[in-house]
Amino acid sequence: MSDNTVKMSSIRRNEIILKVVIYIVSIIFSIMTLFPFVIMFANSFKSTVEVQQSTLALWSAHPFANLAKNWHVINSKDFHPFTGLLNSFIISTCSTILNVYFSSLTAYAITAYEWKLRDAFSGMIIAVMMIPTTVTTIGFYQMVYKLGLTNNLSMLIIPSIAAPMTVFFMRQYLQANLAMEIVQSARIDGAGEFRIFNQIVVPLMKPAIATQAIFAYVGSWNNLFMPLILLTDKTKKTLPVMVSLLNGDIYKTEYGAIYLGLFITVLPLIVVYAFLSKYIVEGVALGGVKS
């Protein structure tokens, strides 16, 4: 009897210790995580000189005057937050939707159907995934330039239909989570294949889609090099490209304004992330699960 209570209390003690450890480690990591955001935020309120003298300081002598000045610098230097936001939004949203939808479709084609070239095709996707991006950017730019399609936002959107990484992930996910019985029973009910995909498979893949959508969105939003050389018309520039222009006048870099620009750039991402993360965090109960 007493033995049992000792055991119970020791289990409870271990439980508490574990909890404390979890909280301590998590809080340390959270603080680490917030560090770059806090710095970016704080630096938006600093003058260039204050940033130069100490990038990591959290205080500023005249925070609001500096913020106003940084905002003015931004606006006088081809940085149009609303145009940039709109362009970034169009590119990221469209390419994310194309990316996750067509990747799911392709992954479904590989997982659910048996066709002759299937293995060759999925092998090819994995190989494509391994092509270093440095390699393709040069050829891609030359091609777009020759076609005269620079400054065309769709050149940054349509290629995301073929996103091998996402296909690969979706395939891994479907292999673990797709029960063919559900598909079969839908077929018996007379549903067409495309409808089965849209109405049954896509909802099933929600957690995977949400995960990939976040990564695709972030990747597209932060993409700098390609937009930088493709989008030369200032009405087409994305936010990161505009931030790069703040490096601006030779020998005179407005650091405070750059951090404000970076902060403006990252803000919408945080919103999008908060919106999508609920699918990851809450955990969407899956319909049919292979155990």
């Binding site: 590989i110 070239l117 091609m143 290629p159 296909v167």
Partner: peptide, 27 residues
């Protein structure tokens, strides 16, 4: 059903051939 396997892979293949294949072969 095999037909659908091919059908559903077409967008990927098209986009890949247009935007990635040429630069890769070039390299």
């Amino acid at each position: 059903y095999a037909k659908f396997g091919y059908l559903f892979s077409i967008p990927f293949i098209l986009s890949f051939c247009i935007f990635t294949l040429y630069p890769v072969i070039y390299t």
